[in-house]
Amino acid sequence: MRRRKGFYEACIKRPLDFVCALGGIIVLSPVLLITAGLVKIKLGSPVIFKQERPGKGEKIFELYKFRTMTDERDINGDLLSNEERMTVFGEKLRRTSLDELPELFNILKGDMSIIGPRPLLTKYLPLYNSEQRKRHLVRPGLTGLAQVNGRNHLSWEEKFKLDTLYVKKLSFRMDVQIFLKTIATVLKREGITSETSVTMEPFEGNNNQ
């Protein structure tokens, strides 16, 4: 799949991401260090949760986040559910979006962008239809159009429609609007959980491919 890039996307977006991510890491370094220390005390090691995610062109990269769950397992050695492993401290990290701050390093590396469709699990790749796969034509983002329009309160279908709409309409103006709306969304702590889960129900594919 190919698409035509505008001047902003081709020449400005990546350098701007790098400068913003570097500035964010410098300015927020005290917050990063304090949060890392609290995660170490409350949840133990590792402090950083790493997980493979598909990026631009479906290229796999390692996503960084602050750990928010314990490693508690059942008698068979299997991990307990997300709800059972989520701690009060971990929930606070998610509600304030502090758990997402290590992704600034992903942006610095070029794995991600400040604005773009959120990177999802690699196991979902075979489940996308041709339209949904277009979300991988751009770098995934720290925040995106779906995150400022309902986040985890949206259905998967609604999320993917917003993701592909972003890919089609990508512009400097849209990125600025999403960035400003993200600040308001984080302050209001909206859409952190879905109606039935502490995160989001798994994507199980489309009824009509």
Rank of each mutant, 00 (worst) to 15 (best):
L32F: 13
S155L: 07
N152P: 05
I41G: 10
K123H: 13
N207A: 14
P117I: 05
Y8A: 00
V167N: 03
K92F: 15
R133C: 05
L22Q: 05
N152A: 04
F203W: 05
L79M: 11
E103H: 06
A146W: 00
S97P: 09
L38W: 01
L80R: 12
I25W: 02
K59G: 09
L120N: 11
E58V: 13
G44N: 08
Q51K: 04
L38F: 13
N152H: 00
H136V: 01
G37I: 03
A146F: 09
E131K: 14
V19H: 00
A36N: 10
D17W: 11
T70G: 08
R2W: 11
S194D: 10
D99V: 00
T35D: 01
N208D: 12
M174C: 01
E83G: 02
V138Y: 06
N82H: 14
F7K: 00
D78Q: 14
E201D: 15
V31K: 10
Y124V: 08
R173L: 14
L142M: 15
Q177T: 13
I26L: 15
R189N: 08
G191K: 01
P119Q: 04
T87D: 00
K65A: 09
K134N: 12
N208W: 02
R173C: 10
V138E: 06
S197V: 02
S81V: 09
L16Y: 04
D17F: 03
F89S: 02
P119F: 07
L137C: 06
P46W: 01
K109T: 10
L142E: 04
K161G: 02
Y128G: 01
L22T: 13
K161I: 08
V138P: 07
L125W: 12
S113I: 12
R135C: 08
V138M: 09
K50Q: 14
M86R: 11
D17M: 02
I48A: 06
T164N: 12
L63E: 06
N149W: 07
A36T: 03
H136Y: 15
L142F: 13
F18W: 13
L154R: 11
G110H: 12
G44M: 02
L80E: 06
P117K: 03
T196Q: 12
K13T: 06
